[in-house]
């Protein structure tokens, strides 16, 4: 059975500001949905709510027909933050954290961690201190750390925003590989429209907490329906 995420009428207010406004959307296993939009359009807020890190003021999050609460969400979803946060310890302990809290036995953890590290060319990095790694390496660790727990929903917040082009390509390739497995739903916030085009199945345009355009990648760029999206795609809207 392929899993299905349905968000229904999500609202999130920060005092007077409506960060999410009656937001509804759907995503299926194996898809990558890109969230685009100017700063403050609600991308990060949405990701944090799906991750179970913040509570919506109202609305429902339904996964495979069941409404989920914050604790359920934390179990099935994981978020890779824009600024990669490292536990102040070794790469191995960073990557193994999610497995360890799930009570996986240590032998299995070792195998999995070493496999995953070598699959992203980080073999031999296991005993290095994570905070001493370069930005690109840290972001790779952050991604490995997230997908090693085999989440059903993988949330990426601007995964390449702070990286130079060559590192950005490495990360994009990693995302592609994960996508090819079709094992999870990926929701990615990005500023980079080219990246959105390269990776996504669907693109959602967030504008003041609403999704104003939700369409297949090709259509999004070729014939967007919304006027604002047209301006956005053509570069008239400022990021």
């Amino acid at each position: 059975m392929s899993s299905h995420l349905h968000l229904e009428k999500l609202n999130k207010n920060y005092e007077d500001l409506k960060a999410l406004n009656n937001l509804t959307f759907d995503a299926h296993q194996g898809q990558l949905i890109s969230l685009v939009g100017v700063n403050g359009s609600g991308k990060t807020t949405l990701l944090r709510i799906i991750a179970g890190l913040d509570l919506p003021n109202n609305g429902k999050i339904i996964f495979n027909g069941k409404e989920l609460n914050i604790n359920d969400l934390r179990k099935i979803a994981t978020l890779v933050f824009q600024k990669s946060i490292m536990f102040n310890t070794t790469v191995f302990k960073n990557v193994s954290f999610g497995l360890k809290v799930r009570g996986v036995d240590s032998k299995k953890i070792r195998n999995k961690v070493f496999d995953s590290l070598s699959s992203v060319s980080l073999q031999g990095f296991d005993s290095k201190k994570a905070s001493n790694l370069s930005g690109g390496e840290q972001q790779r660790v952050a991604l490995v750390r997230a997908f090693i727990i085999e989440p059903q929903i993988l949330l990426l917040d601007e995964p390449t925003a702070n990286l130079d082009p060559s590192n950005a390509i490495i990360i994009e390739n990693m995302i592609k590989k994960i996508l090819e497995r079709k094992s999870c739903i990926i929701v990615m916030a990005t500023h980079n429209l080219h990246q959105a085009r390269r990776l996504s199945s669907f693109i959602a345009h967030l504008h003041y907490g609403r999704i104003i355009e939700f369409s297949k990648s090709e259509k999004f760029f070729a014939q967007p329906e919304n006027k604002i999206t047209q301006k956005f795609v053509s570069g008239e809207l400022q990021f």
Binding site: A51, R74, L79, F81, F87, T89, F97
Partner: peptide
Amino acid sequence: TDIGVKDLARTLGASRFQTDLAVMHE
């Protein structure tokens, strides 16, 4: 301690106690 550590531990599936432990460890 960086508030992000708390979020990080949580999003990786740590329980409340495990999160506190991670923060303490930091």
